[in-house]
């Protein structure tokens, strides 16, 4: 074997170094805010820079004393779980039907819905949506927010779940039918359990979407008692009108915990994997 030409060796090292530098920069870009999220809440005087904190739990104490902070986490959970219930139930039924029944123009319909779904919860729709909610008397109710969020998320969920349902062999259902199972029983005994990883994935995805949504609850919910965490965080100012970083940093950490917890819970309970059947 002959040694590689010196020029190509140099080029090799330069490209390695450049690669490592880029990777480190990208990693730092994502790691810095996360580091801030972990350190700032425990700092006696948090700033917007990452630094070694002067350890204290005072920020959490003042957070607990805030009348709206913890309640808003509860509100976020109500909105998230409510939307999951609506979206997963309706989405699973719609996806199953669309996967199994032949309708002319089915795929066109799905793509059209997917395209239009961003309009429902989009900024441009906020004024008509607000007026609609006032008209039907759902303004300033969590039901209204859940319905609006569901409307925005359902097309995507139907799209994802339909793909998932398509991958479930029909012979499972036909087999159950032959033993006399009615459609409801087939759905409960066979389709839902087999589609469970897909349903679990969609639930977590919906929760994340609702949890982080600011605009919709900000516009539709007027009283601070019913506003979710993402909106309440917006109200944390000091008397002098500056962002109250000690409250915001502590709240940010509390804010992110439930989502992470639910991810692990769902992952352990249902698992993001496919059952080991014969999958043709």
């Amino acid at each position: 074997m002959s040694a590689p030409a010196p020029r190509s060796t140099v080029r090799h090292y330069v490209s390695r170094v450049a690669f490592v530098v880029v990777v480190v920069l990208v990693a730092a870009f994502f790691a810095l805010p996360l580091t801030w999220l972990v350190t700032a809440p425990f700092d006696a005087s948090p700033t917007l820079t990452v630094e070694w904190p002067q350890w204290t739990l005072a920020n959490f104490r003042s957070l607990a004393e805030n009348p709206y902070a913890l309640r808003s986490i509860g509100n976020s959970l109500v909105l998230g779980l409510g939307t999951i219930a609506v979206v997963v139930t309706l989405g699973a039924l719609a996806a199953y039907a669309l996967s199994r029944v032949r309708i002319p123009g089915r795929d066109g319909l799905l793509y059209a819905l997917l395209l239009l779904s961003s309009v429902v919860t989009g900024t441009a729709a906020m004024v008509p949506l607000f007026q609609l909610m006032v008209q039907v008397g759902l303004i300033n109710t969590q039901t209204g927010v859940v319905l609006a969020m569901s409307g925005g998320l359902l097309p995507t969920v139907v799209f994802i779940l339909k793909d998932f349902m398509d991958s479930i062999p029909k012979s499972y259902e036909e087999s159950a039918r032959l033993y006399g199972a009615r459609p409801g029983q087939i759905l409960r005994h066979v389709v839902v359990p087999i589609a469970r990883p897909g349903l679990a994935f969609v639930s977590v995805w919906v929760l994340v979407q609702v949890w982080g949504n600011f605009l919709l609850p900000f516009i539709l919910l007027r009283s601070p008692e019913s506003q979710p965490a993402a909106v309440i965080m917006y109200t944390f100012y000091t008397e002098s009108g500056q962002a109250d970083l000690s409250l915001i940093s502590a709240f940010s950490l509390v804010f992110s915990v439930p989502v992470i917890a639910i991810y692990f819970l769902v992952n352990r309970r249902y698992g993001f994997r496919f059952h080991g059947g014969i999958k043709s």
Partner: peptide, 13 residues
């Protein structure tokens, strides 16, 4: 009637 499918269709769960 009872039927055995080509892929057996055993419920994986």
């Amino acid at each position: 009637v009872a039927m055995v499918f080509q892929d057996y269709a055993l419920f994986p769960h």
